[in-house]
């Protein structure tokens, strides 16, 4: 198999953003036990300079080295960002930040992007905020992607 680079290994061996936030404003849960990788992202949001900002964010992940490393990095990228900016983070940003991933592991970065956007979606629904159209569509796509992944690998939820 293709090897992981040093940066991926650092984030995997010593992730800085692991943890659970008590009473989070939003939680994103993606992946499932049967298929191997599960990510939970917890966020706390407050208004800073008039904008909804992610001021606390943590993750918990069961999965391979790439799953842990991409979780850790997506948290780094989203921390302190406004909701608006955090929603712009893509899996490509995660891969770039890590300095690349083995081709077969790129799907893990997608999981990280999804976990973040699902946490934001959860926050907006809970707070009764108007969910932007793109996020609504992404949420649907996330659910679809999960389903396709299960079908492909014949997993059950």
């Amino acid at each position: 198999m293709e090897q992981y680079n040093k940066k991926v290994m650092q984030h995997f061996l010593k992730p800085k953003n692991v943890g659970e936030i008590k009473n989070p404003d939003g939680v994103g849960k993606v992946g499932n036990l049967v298929c191997g990788d599960i990510m939970h992202v917890f966020i706390k949001v407050k208004e800073i300079k008039g904008k909804d900002t992610i001021y606390q964010i943590k993750f918990q992940t069961l999965g391979c080295a790439a799953a842990v490393a991409t979780s850790d990095v997506v948290i780094d990228l989203a921390k302190g960002k406004t909701i608006q900016d955090a929603l712009k983070i893509t899996n490509q940003d995660v891969v770039r930040e890590l300095g690349g991933l083995p081709a077969i592991k790129v799907h893990c970065s997608l999981l990280a992007e999804q976990a973040l956007s699902e946490a934001i979606y959860d926050y907006m629904i809970k707070k009764g905020k108007k969910v932007p159209k793109e996020l609504e569509e992404k949420h649907k796509r996330n659910q679809e992607h999960e389903k396709n992944f299960h079908d492909k690998f014949k997993c059950e939820k």
Binding site: M1, L13, G36, L62, G63, C64
Partner: peptide, 29 residues
């Protein structure tokens, strides 16, 4: 509750070399 590839790589860091049957370490997933 543990994934094999992660286990293998963290053991490798401790100098212990083993192998796993985990999907995450296979080419086919």
């Amino acid at each position: 509750g543990v994934e094999g590839e992660a286990l293998l790589l963290r053991l490798d860091e401790k100098g212990i070399a083993v192998s796993t049957g985990s999907a995450c370490s296979s080419k086919s997933l």
